[in-house]
């Protein structure tokens, strides 16, 4: 592998790092709950991308046996299955947390995390 293809091969991981850091910085520096949830969704997206990118095998095809070429190497689609599951879980938790934010806004009249502290100490 020459220098260029190393970069290409690791491009998904660079993308993962960038998206993950974006999400993390939102989590650290933003105070609005909706934005914080966006940050979490970004982190989730980064992790899903990471999972999928670990499943890539050079010169392998998807394991669909119908009309598969003779002697082709098939990739085991475990991580793709994992990613689908984790996307579903992510959607469920985002939906739930957004509905919580809605209820919090209705009662507290704010989405600023610094002011949502009915319990402390």
């Amino acid at each position: 592998m020459n220098g260029g293809s190393v970069i290409i091969a690791h491009a998904p991981l660079f993308a993962v790092a960038v998206i993950f850091l974006l999400g993390l910085s939102i989590l650290f520096f933003k105070r609005n709950l909706i934005k914080i949830l966006m940050g979490i969704t970004l982190i989730e997206a980064a992790i899903n991308l990471f999972l999928v990118s670990t499943g890539y095998r050079m010169d392998a095809i998807a394991p669909i046996f119908t009309n598969a070429p003779e002697g082709a190497v098939m990739a085991l689609p475990t991580v793709q299955a994992l990613t689908l599951t984790s996307i579903v879980i992510g959607v469920a938790s985002s939906a739930m947390m957004l509905s919580f934010v809605m209820l919090i806004y209705r009662h507290y009249k704010t989405t600023n995390v610094n002011r949502i502290r009915g319990m402390k100490g």
Binding site: I40, I47, F50, L51, L82, S86, M97, F100, H107, M119
Partner: peptide
């Protein structure tokens, strides 16, 4: 009056992030 929802959100937020961290570890091992 929203207090329980706040508690639920705190739990969901931190255990969601904890779960994602577990998922990364699973990815690393796999």
């Amino acid at each position: 009056k929203g207090v329980a929802v706040e508690a639920g959100l705190k739990y969901a937020l931190i255990s969601g992030l904890g779960g994602l961290s577990v998922l990364v570890a699973i990815g690393l091992l796999y």
